[in-house]
Nucleic acid binder design. Structure first.
Length: 278
DNA sequence: CGCGCCTCCTGTGTGC
DNA sequence: TGCACACAGGAGGCGC
């Protein structure tokens, strides 16, 4: 998302939207007033900035509202020539009054979506419930340490809770836990302060390295605004590596079924807790 | 209120 | 060859 935000900062900030075209209503389902209202609120508005918190990003507009987006699993925000053929899963198209590149929201699985939200440049209302992410200079380290120790849940589940810490999905959670040498089912109430700080340091390190590498890409769905893939997948230590040797100790990486999902971990570096949180 | 779980969606890969 | 099914997963929302 940070990779996409940087692309939008260069690609659309300072430009004026001519019109918006919603091609699939599901893509704006969080805009409760409907697709026509969404389009009306964007027409003629200038984009003033490109901001992000966790996996949400938003474009404050000169109207005081903001265009808020979440890419979900398969969403893409792409810059494309207005005369370029429409992508098969093009959901929303923004055309600009300078005749330059469109901003196109393309989403195969439609888990993502766009909405126009009040709240503008500060924090749109639809993003208020999301915690800061640890790459944010204003992230409160000791506040996080205290909060995660108050939880009564498993460690990976806590890392995926965007109201506690944002920007962490399944991939980065598994990578951070491997670096911190902690098991995904470790009960959060057993974390000492130093161990909780170790978790945070590992998460921050993984996010910073991923941003540096331009994001993580497994296939053509994970791309920047120019449709290019990042390289962090080449740096993964556990995610997607079931049966392959641990880069630290050589043991076979395991995959556990967890929450109808997967958790990847090294059975030697990240031993299971005696009393795992279910 | 905190926590756990279900559901939304569709393209891809695999096994029979 | 073709069908059935598992899998990918962020997060809203609901039930307990």
């Amino acid at each position: 998302m940070e990779t996409v935000r940087r692309g939008l900062e260069h690609g659309v900030v300072g430009r004026r939207i001519d019109h918006a075209e919603v091609r699939h209503p599901r893509a704006v389902r969080r805009h409760l007033a409907g697709a026509r209202d969404f389009e009306a609120l964007l027409a003629g508005r200038r984009v003033d900035a490109a901001l992000r918190r966790g996996k949400y990003l938003w474009l404050p507009l000169d109207s005081g509202d903001a265009l808020v987006g979440h890419l979900g699993m398969s969403g893409q925000l792409l810059l494309a020539r207005p005369d370029a053929p429409y992508e098969p899963h093009l959901r929303v198209r923004l055309a600009f009054d300078d005749g330059g590149d469109d901003l196109r929201f393309v989403d195969q699985r439609t888990f993502g979506g766009l909405a126009v939200s009040a709240g503008g440049a500060a924090l749109p209302h639809s993003v208020e419930h999301i915690a800061r992410d640890p790459v944010d200079p204003a992230f409160d380290d000791e506040g996080f340490v205290a909060a995660i120790r108050r939880r009564r849940t498993g460690l990976k589940r806590a890392l995926l809770d965007q109201t506690l810490i944002s920007g962490v999905g399944a991939i980065y959670a598994d990578e951070a836990l491997w670096r911190a040498k902690l098991h995904w089912a470790r009960p959060t109430e057993t974390l000492t302060r130093p161990v909780a700080r170790r978790v945070l340091a590992a998460v921050r390190e993984v996010l910073e390295e991923a941003i540096e590498a331009g994001g993580t890409s497994f296939d053509a769905l994970y791309v920047n605004v120019n449709g290019q893939s990042g390289y962090f997948d080449r740096s993964l230590d556990v995610y997607g590596r079931e049966g392959e040797p641990c880069h630290r100790c050589g043991a076979m990486i395991r995959r556990s079924r967890w929450m109808n999902r997967s958790a990847y971990w090294c059975p030697v570096c990240q031993p299971a807790p005696r009393k795992p949180h279910p």
